[in-house]
Amino acid sequence: MCWRCCWCLCCCCCDNSVTNDDIGPIYSQEPGCLEKGQQLTKTSGGHSVNMQTVNRLSTSRELQELKKTLPKMDAYIYCRPFIDFSQIAEHLFLTGYGGITNENIKYNSIKCIVSVTYETPVYAMDGISFIRVPVADNGKENMYKYFDELSDKIAELVDNNNNTNTVVHCLFGRSRSVTVVLAYLMKSQRLSLDKAFDLVKFNRPVIAVNPGYIRQLAQYERYLLGERLTKLDVIIAKNKRLVSAKELAAKYE
């Protein structure tokens, strides 16, 4: 499996040339999209969705051995800080694909895995539910259509006395998965995008959301709260990728 395109995105700096009213295309909710997304074989951009099913989680040692066999750019997925589990709320965690290990899932008592990727496999294991949001990290994908249904699903899991420990991941735990968690926080806690972003960044400093998804979240803020409270130039300045995946991983070597 090749991760190069996604890795390159994590090395790029965000476009900072936006105005407060520049939210790009207007998106809409699509009822039933989350259920449909579980069966999609291609993303809206034409990427083939990995439909491989795995029934066991790799151990941390197995992934570190795998890392040794990969080109360096691909191996960063299995490096800290991306594989770290970051607790965002009482029952909600963020990580990268390399963090989905047998040890992490058991230690954090995870009962639901939300994969915001098209590249990674389907997890089919007893006692753990699996949800996929098959999108690429290019910012042009319509993730907005998933915000309401997925936020409600996460709320059903972690709130309402269900207390189901849930982890959301993408490849690096920096962009796509963060977008989903931000949407959930904005809806469940009635937070502005700016406040939700600060909360997540405090608990996972390596986040760097694709600018296209920031714009979709800005539209969602207006949908939820009836007005735009977050200035795009401010949030994109906070979000700017000043450090690449390569540089971050080097700090932990």
Results as ranks from 00 to 15, higher is better:
residue 1 M to I: 14
residue 2 C to G: 11
residue 7 W to I: 02
residue 8 C to T: 06
residue 10 C to W: 11
residue 12 C to D: 09
residue 16 N to S: 14
residue 20 N to I: 12
residue 20 N to L: 12
residue 22 D to A: 15
residue 23 I to Y: 14
residue 24 G to T: 12
residue 25 P to T: 02
residue 26 I to C: 01
residue 29 Q to T: 11
residue 31 P to A: 05
residue 45 G to Q: 12
residue 45 G to I: 12
residue 45 G to Y: 10
residue 48 S to M: 15
residue 49 V to P: 01
residue 52 Q to T: 14
residue 53 T to V: 15
residue 55 N to L: 11
residue 56 R to W: 10
residue 57 L to I: 05
residue 58 S to L: 14
residue 59 T to R: 05
residue 61 R to A: 15
residue 61 R to M: 13
residue 61 R to C: 14
residue 63 L to G: 00
residue 64 Q to W: 13
residue 64 Q to A: 14
residue 64 Q to M: 15
residue 64 Q to D: 14
residue 65 E to R: 15
residue 75 A to T: 13
residue 76 Y to N: 01
residue 78 Y to G: 02
residue 81 P to E: 08
residue 84 D to W: 01
residue 86 S to T: 07
residue 88 I to C: 11
residue 88 I to F: 13
residue 89 A to P: 05
residue 90 E to K: 09
residue 96 G to T: 00
residue 97 Y to G: 00
residue 99 G to S: 09
residue 100 I to M: 09
residue 101 T to P: 06
residue 101 T to Q: 04
residue 103 E to I: 05
residue 106 K to M: 07
residue 108 N to R: 09
residue 110 I to D: 03
residue 113 I to Y: 06
residue 116 V to C: 09
residue 117 T to L: 00
residue 118 Y to A: 10
residue 119 E to F: 00
residue 119 E to M: 09
residue 120 T to N: 05
residue 123 Y to A: 03
residue 123 Y to E: 00
residue 124 A to R: 13
residue 126 D to H: 14
residue 126 D to N: 11
residue 128 I to Y: 04
residue 130 F to I: 03
residue 130 F to V: 02
residue 130 F to R: 00
residue 132 R to D: 02
residue 132 R to P: 02
residue 135 V to H: 09
residue 136 A to H: 08
residue 139 G to M: 01
residue 140 K to N: 12
residue 148 D to S: 12
residue 149 E to R: 01
residue 150 L to W: 00
residue 151 S to D: 03
residue 154 I to P: 03
residue 155 A to V: 00
residue 161 N to G: 03
residue 163 N to R: 14
residue 163 N to A: 11
residue 163 N to P: 07
residue 166 T to W: 13
residue 166 T to D: 08
residue 168 V to Y: 04
residue 169 H to Q: 02
residue 169 H to P: 04
residue 170 C to L: 09
residue 171 L to R: 06
residue 176 R to I: 04
residue 176 R to N: 12
residue 176 R to F: 09
residue 177 S to H: 00
residue 178 V to Y: 02
residue 180 V to I: 15
residue 184 Y to T: 04
residue 184 Y to F: 14
residue 184 Y to M: 04
residue 184 Y to D: 01
residue 187 K to I: 05
residue 187 K to Y: 04
residue 188 S to L: 01
residue 193 L to H: 10
residue 193 L to T: 07
residue 196 A to E: 07
residue 200 V to P: 03
residue 208 A to T: 08
residue 208 A to H: 12
residue 208 A to P: 10
residue 213 Y to I: 03
residue 216 Q to R: 08
residue 218 A to Q: 05
residue 220 Y to I: 07
residue 221 E to D: 08
residue 223 Y to W: 07
residue 223 Y to H: 05
residue 224 L to Q: 08
residue 227 E to N: 10
residue 229 L to I: 09
residue 233 D to Q: 07
residue 233 D to H: 00
residue 236 I to Q: 11
residue 236 I to W: 06
residue 238 K to M: 10
residue 239 N to W: 03
residue 242 L to M: 10
residue 243 V to H: 09
residue 246 K to I: 03
residue 247 E to G: 04
residue 252 Y to F: 13
residue 252 Y to L: 08
